[in-house]
Design a protein around this nucleic acid. Structure first.
Length: 126
RNA sequence: AGAGUUGGCGAGGUGGUUGCAGAUUUGUCCUAGAGGCAAAUUUGAGGAAAGUCCGGACUCCCGAAAGACCAUACUUGCUGGAUAAUUCCCAGUGCGAGCGAUCGCGAGGAUAGUGCCACAGAAAAAUACCGCCUUUUCAUUAAACAUUGAACAUUAAACAUUAAACAGCAACCACUGAGAAAUGCUAAAUGAUAAAUGCUAAAUGAAAUUGGUAAGGGUGCAAAGGUGCGGUAAGAGCGCACCAGCAGUAUCGAGAGGUACUGGCUCGGUAAACCCCAGUAGGGAGCAAGGUCGAAGGGAUUAGGGUUGGUCUUUUUCCCAUCCCGACCAAGGAGAACCGCAUGAGGUGUUUGGUAACAAGCAUCCUAGAUAGAUAACUACCCUCAGAUUAUAAAUCACGAUAAUCUGAGAACAGAAUCCGGCUUACGUUUCAACUCUCUUG
RNA sequence: GGGCGAGUAGCUCAGUGGAUUAGAGCAUUUGGCUACGAACCAAAAGGUCAGGGGUUCAAAUCCCUUCUCGCUCA
């Protein structure tokens, strides 16, 4: 379940900005960093609010095997994709995976991400 | 049937839905681009993609290309072959392991030279400490050597004396039997010597040191070819037999080497110590190499200058130098943008040559290309495996075979990042082929 | 992706072109000193020299290989 390119974070500068200025929310296996484009002064009123973009970060401390890291990334992307329509526009979000997340399955990520997004009030309708 | 050796196939298959990336086509949007968006079709990880241990291709720098000598580097190091190249691969030789199939080997040179071999040991690679023999001087002795061997000393058996346990007597003492042990005595047995006899004319000791010798010397991983017989003043491959090694000759082989004969007796180990010999190599950096994205170059001349660790030779206008000619600005725009970047020492099949690695020819196929980094989730059928139940033929029973149904599983190691060829490491199950050893015979 | 380096006692490091038995400081344990403690004095224990294999009479050291950790390159 990949994400379309428009929903990915691609610049190193974006990541820095999110880490430095964004909100933080925690769960046992994941950490969420989020930054709204409206709060930053860079965005100009002429642009319509851009789509929310996501980045996922896994260090080698989680697992040294590339297979394991890639699988976790894909599962998280799948969760995001299934909630894509509910998520508000204009956010830049980085999800950091903690070392304990090796044993998690798809359903665990589903629940945790939902809770994190609720806490950050990014999801519509709640 | 069990144990084992070697090599191979394979890493479930075909679909559906949602979703990601590339390519092609079509449509659409505008700022008109190698642009965005949408749809359709199609393609989308491995045997190791890994480790980065080697070898190349490719790119740039040291102007370039070629060559000679020297230096430097090299886990290059039996022989031949094969390859773009290699430390890989193939075939063989030698050595080693295994009953065997088979497997392993850094396998040139230690008489080119230098170094090292702790402790121990006389000595660690050529010497002589002890010892053995010889020579000289001095001293001593009729000794030494061989044979016989009294006395003497030691003790055994037997005998003598004393006499315990035990047995008999209902029981104790006594008595009778019994006889361990102790003491005494003794030898033709053992030990040692006086003495005698025989034989030779020297012998012994000390010192000196002339010469010989490498047999022997609690060591040590290793001691000067090994064992035996002869031989000698004492010894020694000094001679002989067998074994090991070396050299030469003959012969077989393309070669490493094999076989046979002869010879003189033959100077340890270490080169994964320096090194010698032969061989190979311009040096360095690596796709994060490097290049492109408007804005200056082109031509002529050769008298001169400039090169790879060093010296030198040849060629070349690559740069500098000198001279001549010529040029001029529309947009966008410096991004982890694009190219490099997916047709390659390619795959598959087949024929020919070759023992083989491999090579050549023909036919056919195009089969990942991301860049915060694309493969996932669910599901249907088939197939494979495991377990359970039932049935079938044969049968005394068991194992096993076939069929049907149900349940479960399809995993392990692991994810392309410029591309190839190797090596190394990781890896669950099933299966195929060839071969070896042992046991059994429905 | 490419290129480098390191691993020795609980910790920090020596040792290293083969040979004394692998050492030092801190920490630990025991004893002494002290009314008690610190400091001090004395002694002891503690090592698969990262793992495996090879060369050698002999390897922490020489050679090969594997593992772990770290650094660096636009």
């Amino acid at each position: 379940m990949g994400l379309p390119k428009s929903h990915r974070l691609r610049d190193r500068g974006n990541y820095r900005a999110v880490y430095a200025q964004g909100i933080r929310r925690y769960s046992p296996h994941l950490t969420l960093f989020a930054l709204s484009c409206r709060e930053t002064k860079e965005t100009k009123s002429t642009d319509s609010t851009p789509a929310s973009s996501f980045g996922i970060s896994i260090s080698k401390k989680v697992s040294k095997k590339a297979v394991v890291r890639n699988r976790i990334k894909r599962q998280i992307k799948g969760v995001i994709r299934s909630h894509l329509q509910e998520i508000k526009a204009g956010w830049q979000i980085v999800i950091v995976v903690r070392p304990k997340a090796i044993e998690c399955k798809y359903e665990h990520f589903l629940r945790e991400l939902e809770e994190l997004l609720k806490q950050a009030k990014i999801i519509n309708g709640y």
